[in-house]
Design a binder for these strands. Structure first.
Length: 535
RNA sequence: GCGCCUGUAGCUCAGUUGGAUAGAGCAACUGCCUUCUAAGCAGUGGGCCAGGGGUUCGAAUCCCUUCAGGCGCACCA
């Protein structure tokens, strides 16, 4: 039976369309079905004060006040436990996100993925899943070697050896910074040494340096990972585990199953057996593995680690990659519903109203760090999390800054801070510490104002909203809910005084405020946004 | 050419998996601070839900089609 929260207050607190949906199979008019259902429900004890039939056959339920007070009391007593729902039942879920190549700083698009992945992880954790957040490091192969080479050439140039810069090399100024750092460390040790002889040093130094920066940027953005998986490690022998390497073992396993063949001097995976448009090369003519080879191994490894579900959060520009990964998982017989890819659409960064071109190779881009420094981590995250991940978004850096005083994130945080301020005020009077503690003796029936009823109803909706967000993998539902809750609170605050001479009313209102604070804090926590006591 | 995503108020975006009169923020305009934070509140205006067909009691939502924008279609990631 599907139950929804009606848009309009006039339609009660909960509504169902079941009578309309049953009309056809039962061959009866919907209103008649509704009448029968309602008269049946009314025979029993229920938390509803009113059950109405409206429109074409909607059944609208309105809660009794006592039921609302009971709910409020539970929320206050159980706190965050009341807000969580055990959907996951401890199932292990792995969420891989960001996973940007360590060949340059993170940009705004990575930031969106980071904000989303982090929020989703928080939500699923609260929903009873055993969540592991992972970052996959592409520290092997062409791209990092190119990074190393770029740093190498800049190093030579800085020391006066004017050799040409690789055409496809990374041109950002961060390359030069790393080269300078290397000079400080090893002086001219590698001057006039060919890249072939010292590629490992430059490559390792450069990507490790980039990785350290990335990790720091993410940390300052408020995003952390449980595990960082190195691609390079997948090529190394493991003690007692792989015979050759995880990559080679995975390929061998596919070979045994008959999905590997050789053609034109290369080795292919027959992904077309599993719905891909074409077969994919895993070992190139020159004997090098492609990235796809390690991706096979990586996903195989995820399966071996025993997750109940695997979630990959990718930039939308990688969507063409899905069929081949799906093919791999099918080949290893992972049930379809255990693998999910979420595509985060592109972010267009706007400055002064026009798009900023972003090219890592050419070195023209604005980094995540710059944006976060300029507009703040909370604001940046909140902006990302007020959009569905499937919709591309324009991030106007000037607007994000200009609006800072009237930004939705501050609106929500302000509600939280205001309540904290009320509590501070309460402590100054004789209502000492009543805001922050739960009290059994509070009589909520004194909360008779319409704004109070609306607030309580809204608070009790949180678990429903949360469940929807967890089920649909949509953090933005919480973002919108928080804005609505904050709006109701601000409105209430403006119209009624919490602290007054009336002892019973003051106590009840302080407790109501505490409930609002609990929900705001929990919601903001899900989004990875701070809840300041003062603003 | 093929595939994926998007098109909703002047702007940025929601729209509870097909429900009731399509919403919010920003911008614009009008009011509200000697009392718990004015980063706030109350109010006004603003729409061919890109266009056209279809499915049904009912469509912004599902199907077909056209148009527009973004992103992919490597022995690069």
């Amino acid at each position: 039976m599907d139950i929804e929260i009606p848009k309009s207050e006039a339609h009660g607190d909960l509504a169902t369309t079941i009578a309309m949906n049953l009309a056809r199979p039962l061959k009866k008019p919907p209103r008649k079905i509704a009448e029968e259902l309602v008269s049946e429900i009314k025979k029993y004890e229920s938390p509803f004060e009113k059950i109405d039939i409206a429109g074409a056959g909607f059944i609208n339920f309105t809660f009794k006040k006592e039921y609302l007070y009971k709910g409020l009391n539970r929320l206050l007593k159980e706190g965050y436990e009341f807000l969580k729902q055990d959907i996951g039942k401890g199932r292990k879920i792995q969420i891989e996100f960001v996973s940007a190549n360590p060949t340059g700083p993170l940009h705004i698009g990575h930031g969106r993925g980071a904000a989303y992945g982090n929020a989703l992880s928080n939500i699923l954790k609260a929903a009873g899943y055993n969540v592991q957040k992972e970052y996959y490091i592409n520290d092997a192969g062409m791209q990092v070697r190119l990074l190393g080479q770029s740093v190498y050439v800049r190093y030579q140039q800085l020391l006066g050896n004017d050799i040409p810069f690789p055409e496809e090399g990374y041109k950002g100024s961060y390359i030069e910074n790393i080269s300078e750092e290397i000079i400080k460390e090893v002086s001219n040790k590698y001057l006039d040494v060919s890249f072939g002889e010292c590629s490992e040093f430059f490559t390792d130094y450069a990507y490790k340096r980039m990785l350290a920066d990335i990790s720091k940027d993410l940390q300052d953005f408020g995003v952390t990972f449980d595990r960082w998986q190195s691609e390079k490690e997948l090529y190394q022998k493991t003690e007692g585990g792989a015979e050759e390497s995880i990559v080679q073992d995975a390929i061998d396993e596919l070979r045994v199953m008959g999905y590997i063949y050789e053609k034109d001097g290369a080795i292919w995976f027959r992904s077309t057996d599993f719905g891909d448009d074409k077969d994919r090369v895993i070992v190139k003519k020159d004997g090098e593995y492609t990235y796809f080879a390690s991706d096979i191994a990586y996903h195989k490894d995820k399966l071996d680690r025993g997750f109940d579900a695997i979630v990959n959060i990718w930039g939308a520009d990688h969507h063409g990659y899905i069929p081949r990964i799906r093919a791999v998982l099918r080949a290893f017989s992972l049930p379809e519903e255990k693998f999910k890819v979420i595509l985060i659409q592109m972010v267009t960064l706007l400055r002064h109203g026009s798009p900023v071109s972003m090219s890592k190779r050419a070195g023209e881009f604005i980094t995540l760090r710059e944006v976060v420094d300029e507009v703040g981590a909370d604001t940046t995250k909140f902006i990302f999390l007020t959009r569905r991940s499937e919709a591309s978004l324009d991030f106007d850096i000037d607007i994000a800054k200009e609006q800072s005083s009237e930004n939705p994130v501050f609106y929500v945080q302000y509600a939280f801070a205001r309540i904290a301020s009320i509590f501070r005020q309460a402590e100054k009077t004789d209502h000492r510490a009543q805001g922050t503690e739960h009290r059994q003796d509070v009589e909520f029936s004194v909360l008779k104002e319409n704004e109070e009823t609306l607030l309580i109803k809204k608070l009790l909706q949180y678990p429903i909203i949360f469940e929807g967000a967890a089920y649909a993998f949509e953090p933005h539902r919480i973002t919108y809910y928080l804005q609505e809750l904050a709006k109701l609170f601000h409105s209430y605050y403006n119209k009624h005084r919490v602290i007054s001479d009336e002892e019973a009313l003051t106590n009840a209102r302080l407790q109501l405020c505490r409930a609002v604070q609990i929900v705001l804090q929990e919601g903001l926590h899900m989004l990875g946004v701070s809840a300041p006591e003062r603003m």
